[in-house]
Design a protein around this nucleic acid. Structure first.
Length: 618
RNA sequence: GCGAGUGUAGCACAAUGGAUAGUGUAGUGGCCUCCGAAGCCAUUGAUCCGGGUUCGACUCCCGGCACUCGCACCA
């Protein structure tokens, strides 16, 4: 019998069955299977300890009874008892081989993982910049973490809706439209050309212009407020200007998103919910949750230590909506229109009070209106700090533009690639640097537990040493190098594929590695079970891909996957140094080529899950 | 003041209540007639303080300390 994709849940099921035979299941026996320290085994079950304690039994004797019922696992695992009652499972080499033979493509891996969330619909709310402004470093983490979470959820079988909840409505548009119209009057051609070359810079300039003019001249302020009123009433001309601002903004954002591998399914910003907030006021008032306070409509939560006095303001005293009202309307829309099972809000942890109030309010509101609230979760993250441990800024104290930051990443990577591979043509070095630079920024963010702030240090993230994107990308290219060597050595690898040219340095997104299916299938058939210590350790690590994905997805913490990929790359590097792949013995060569192929498969699949691009050469 | 988050080696980070707290970097010492040394191998060094729960605590609870952030109409 072949092992399933997720070996740990297979063990969990077997242990539950064993416990049931012993009559332990109805008394609440939980297997508690987890990935073990490699020194002890591949997986361990700790459940006997807690259960024996509760039942006042000898834990080791109990564990032995359970093990005695696991006879059918003995073919695939070495089972041992250790310590006070740990059950250790070590995969036998033949079982490792069987798993590696089975999971030979990204699609196969995905179909193995897809049972976890099949049938679920998730919406992920991330990035969410304000229009008419440039994205800056404060927008980095939401975009990068959010995209990784989308891919993880989709890999686990969920239908995922990527939603960019942009800030496209608000009082700043009065001044901006006023300034825009002034600029258009004094020179339409100049305005259009400025907007064509650097649209967001131009909008920022216009906004500052309008802001200063309004400060200096009450007549301007009144005019700007009039523009805002006209916009809110649906004045055609102002709506057109506003629409233009948003279109141009989104096009500029997309240039950043393209680099980060992001493509939204929907962009439903604050303006979209404009006409949906009246219903929110009505419902909240009708069900007794909202009340008037100081002219505003607010929700208090009497049972809560803070929110009994700190209001959730859903309508301002001037009658206007704010982000509480639109966020509530958003939840309702996601429930009614998208029928989501879950919603992940990838938003800075500093907004946790708002989200807690939002979720608490929504919970009560949905309960009172007989709706089932989707699973809502705040995926919070810390601040990006400079090396001085203060929020990352330019020397002038300005926010660092995301565009400039990514440009610098690519430029630094280019310098490094040029130093390491001076013989490569410049165009190829540029192409490699574009991938390495952006991936380094993404990976530096993702590899760290999102809860804490993180220190942004160029030298560490592109240094290529340690837990970095470059180290992982390098591991991928070394595998590729083995396949190129195998082809020239006439070993039969890559038969039928063309010789490499510089233009194939870039792996195509999502494309299978340039190894034909027949070759892969042939090694898989020829391969014998792993034998050397390095082969076995690498194979053991590969099988645990499933656990890493599951852990990262269930906790919505991509860094678990990063840690796994880094460890896998480390196992591969050890194997690479210890065991030569291109050897004469066809069986040895086949099994090592199989390990190489699956290593590249899992590394690239994992990196793509994180939203990174991969390379054939660097 | 109230609340939240974070405190792990010189520095940057891991650890789903489990076994001897892992890794990188920096330091030291080895390894390229051999598939890419952007690499591999070895080695030194840490849980903020004090209680408690537990067979077992970086992890959970209580009390401190330090830093960061939030707290009535910007999002």
């Amino acid at each position: 019998m072949r092992l399933p994709f997720h070996v740990a849940s297979h063990l969990d099921a077997s242990l539950r069955a064993a416990a049931a035979k012993l009559g332990l299941a109805e008394r609440g026996f939980q297997p508690e299977v987890r990935v073990a320290d490699p020194a002890h085994g591949d997986f361990q079950a700790n459940g006997a300890l807690a259960f024996a304690k509760r039942e006042k039994q000898n834990p080791r004797a109990l564990a032995q009874q359970v093990v005695d019922q696991l006879g059918d696992l003995a073919g695939d695992f070495d089972l041992t008892l250790a310590g006070p009652g740990f059950i250790n499972f070590r995969l036998r080499p033949a079982a490792l081989l069987g798993w590696l033979q089975e999971y030979d493509t990204e699609e196969r891996l995905q179909s193995g993982a897809a049972s976890a969330r099949a049938g679920q619909t998730w919406i992920v709310d991330y990035s969410a910049p304000n229009t008419a402004k440039q994205m800056h470093v404060g927008h980095l983490r939401s975009a990068v973490i959010g995209e990784a979470i989308c891919r993880l959820l989709a890999f686990s079988g969920a239908r995922v809706i990527r939603d960019n909840h942009i800030g496209d409505w608000g009082t700043q548009f009065g001044k901006l439209i006023w300034a825009y119209k002034q600029a258009a009057l004094s020179g339409a051609a100049a305005l259009q050309s400025a907007l064509a070359t650097a649209p967001l810079e131009e909008f920022e300039r216009l906004y500052k212009l309008g802001n200063h003019a309004a400060d200096a001249d009450p007549a301007v302020l009144a005019a700007a407020q009039q523009e805002l009123v006209k916009l809110q009433r649906g004045d055609a001309e102002n709506l057109a200007v506003w629409q233009h601002i948003n279109d141009v903004s989104l096009a500029a954002f997309q240039q950043i998103y393209d680099q980060l591998g992001i493509k939204f399914d929907v962009t439903l910003g604050e303006s979209f919910y404009n006409d949906k907030v009246d219903r929110i006021y009505r419902e909240l008032t009708d069900c007794g949750l909202a009340e008037e306070s100081k002219g505003a409509l607010v929700v208090f939560h009497p049972e809560h230590p803070r929110f009994q006095t700190q209001p959730f303001i859903v309508r301002k005293s001037d009658g206007a909506s704010n982000y509480a009202s639109t966020d509530l309307a958003t939840i309702l829309y996601r429930y009614e229109h998208f029928k989501v099972d879950g919603a992940a809000y990838v938003i800075d942890s500093r907004q946790s009070d708002h989200l807690e109030q939002l979720f608490l309010t929504a919970e009560k509101w949905f309960a009172k209106t007989n709706r089932k609230l989707p699973h809502v979760e705040h995926v919070g993250f810390g601040t990006v700090l400079g090396e001085n441990h203060k929020p990352l800024k330019t020397r002038d104290g300005e926010n660092i533009r995301l565009k400039a930051l990514l440009d610098e990443a690519r430029e630094r990577a280019f310098a490094l690639v040029s130093a390491k591979s001076p013989e490569a043509p410049e165009a190829e070095r540029r192409a490699i640097a574009d991938v390495v630079g952006v991936a380094s920024v993404q990976y530096a963010d993702l590899s760290q537990n999102r809860s804490s702030d993180y220190v942004f240090a160029w030298d560490k993230m592109i240094s290529l040493e340690g837990n970095t994107a470059a180290y992982l990308l390098y591991a991928v290219t070394r595998v590729g190098s083995i396949f190129r060597k195998a082809a020239t050595a006439g070993s039969g690898a890559e038969s039928g594929s063309k010789p490499d040219s510089p233009s194939v340095a870039l792996a195509k997104e999502g494309a299978p590695p340039p190894i034909s299916g027949e070759d892969s299938a042939r090694w898989a058939a020829l391969a014998t079970a792993p034998e050397s210590a390095a082969e076995i350790n690498l194979a053991r690590k590969l099988v645990k891909f499933a656990d890493a994905v599951q852990l990262a997805t269930n906790t919505l913490r991509p860094h678990y996957l990063c840690t796994y990929l880094y460890e896998l790359a480390g196992e591969f590097s050890t194997f690479y140094a210890a065991d030569k792949v291109i050897v004469d013995d066809p069986a040895v060569r086949a099994r090592r080529l199989l390990l190489c192929h699956r290593t590249r498969l899992v590394l690239t699949a994992g990196l793509h899950l994180l939203g990174l691009r991969t390379l054939e050469r660097m």
